[in-house]
Write a protein that binds this DNA or RNA. Structure first.
Lengths: 148, 148
DNA sequence: GGCTATCGTTGGCTTCGCCAACGTTGGATT
DNA sequence: AATCCAACGTTGGCGAAGCCAACGATAGCC
């Protein structure tokens, strides 16, 4: 790509979107070799922090739509990373539990993603990376609070 | 959305992606009332910095695919913001020129996007906004250089 | 004159985030 | 107890975004 117009380079929406594309590409490249989906990490991470959980719980924590969560849990079950069982106390729900293999998978994906993050933020110093993540985190927290 | 897992909150790819979604939503909401597309601004901005230009030129500068550029120019022509003419010197190309109306449109979209940016970065101070844009700019410049 | 590259254009593909609807179940209200 | 409403998992589908392949036409190079 040639040099982008100054007007574009100053627009947050453009900067963030383009950066997001690079991040997505790097993430996909990092996860493809182990046949993983970005959502898998999100679900396992959410599960780790509150186990067991219903699919609706996981949806709320990850921001992944319930309907998409169904397929993600399917895949995780197929690989033996989680177990899905009907909730006896509330038969509308499924109880999702992580397996030992799932825990190892979570660690593996975390490693791969951390590595991909290193490539993404390569031009930044450690302090700057921290700064960037903090700023994004604050923006995100702000908007998460006012839109569910 | 409930509180996101710590593991997710620390992953750049997740933070950037989620932020990008908010940015995209705000941008769409800002531009919808005037029936504009985010790409329209990109094309007009690129055109402003180097006019006239071929569609391929605009593609390279904006990062928009040539095939998508066709439709964008169609729409801009329909609204009278740009003029498309065959290049006499190189008959493979089209010469795209901005009209006076197009220049006003560019200013209008810039205003709307600046406003949307204000909402997106609302929780940040002026200095922090500047910092965020600068960091993203550097990340972007780095990756733009090594992948065309 | 022949090879290669570029251009605009068409058509299509995949992913992603999202929404609507359904049947099932639980909880609250009356 | 009967009724109403909300939540759950699931299916199916939608639109936008980014991307790629291929084509005919044209230009430049050897």
């Amino acid at each position: 790509m040639d040099e982008a117009p100054a007007r574009l380079r100053g627009k947050a929406s453009w900067l963030i979107n383009k950066t997001s594309l690079h991040a997505h590409r790097l993430r996909s490249e990092a996860l493809a070799p182990v046949d993983a989906h970005g959502y898998h990490f999100a679900v396992l991470a959410a599960l780790e922090e509150g186990e067991p959980a219903s699919q609706a719980d996981l949806s709320r924590r990850t921001g992944i739509d319930r309907s998409d969560m169904v397929e993600m849990v399917n895949e995780l079950v197929d690989h033996g990373f989680v177990v899905r069982m009907p909730d006896q106390a509330d038969r509308r729900r499924n109880v999702i539990t992580m397996t030992a293999t799932g825990r190892r998978r979570l660690a593996q994906l975390d490693d791969l993603l951390t590595q991909a993050q290193g490539e993404l933020l390569a031009p930044l110093s450690a302090a700057e990376r921290k700064q960037l993540l903090a700023l994004l985190g604050r923006v995100l927290a702000y908007h998460a609070e006012r839109s569910g």
